[in-house]
Design a protein around this nucleic acid. Structure first.
Lengths: 93, 93
DNA sequence: CCTCTGAATCGATGTTCGTCGAAACAGGAT
DNA sequence: ATCCTGTTTCGACGAACATCGATTCAGAGG
């Protein structure tokens, strides 16, 4: 893996490297899509913090979102997770 | 994914979330084992920094090492990478 | 024993990160 | 228009991080 690849991929792993974000990603992935308001109550941190973590996941390219009226819905981008999985799986057992 | 699982797994992703560590892990994974002295020259940071990053990978449970005489050899723990891969792959495409 | 080399640790420094409360924004509903 | 609620942004703060040079540790070989 070259420097350029590492610079592109590391932020995705980094985004999953926080317990709150990892759980957020898992919860989003467990549904085809989910509203922020259904995410927040499961965490012991403020809504502002949840919003911040969702932004990190978004900027890493792992999730995407859309506002529909009052609520904002999030979903995962499966191809991103898939590429990370493939990378990890390329290690000979 | 519960809080406990997230707390256990997130540090592994976090360890891979730095470009230097991701490249280190990839280089180690590309060999059955490799000496620190063969790793260091590929990076633009000091030996002290490489040593620090290897420690992070070690403490995350992703790699292990053994001193054999003068040199220290590192190798990946495939089961760790495998479990992360499986987690990512559990997302329905 | 002493020295040399590879690697890890220590101590310090500047940067990034996670978190919060407060403020701003978006879109219904009255 | 005005409020109300869900979400994001802003500004700030302490903690954690990446990095370095200097030091220490571990072994091999004189």
């Amino acid at each position: 893996m070259g420097e350029a690849d590492a610079a592109r991929i590391a932020p995705m792993f980094k985004a999953l490297g926080d317990p709150v974000r990892l759980r957020l990603a898992a919860m989003i992935a467990a549904h085809s899509e989910i509203c922020v308001c259904d995410l927040t109550p499961h965490f012991a941190v403020s809504g502002a913090t949840i919003s911040h973590h969702l932004k990190v996941l978004r900027e890493a390219g792992l999730v995407d979102c859309e506002r529909r009226g009052t609520w904002v819905h999030y979903w995962v981008k499966p191809e991103a997770l898939q590429s990370l999985s493939a990378l990890l799986q390329s290690v000979p057992a």
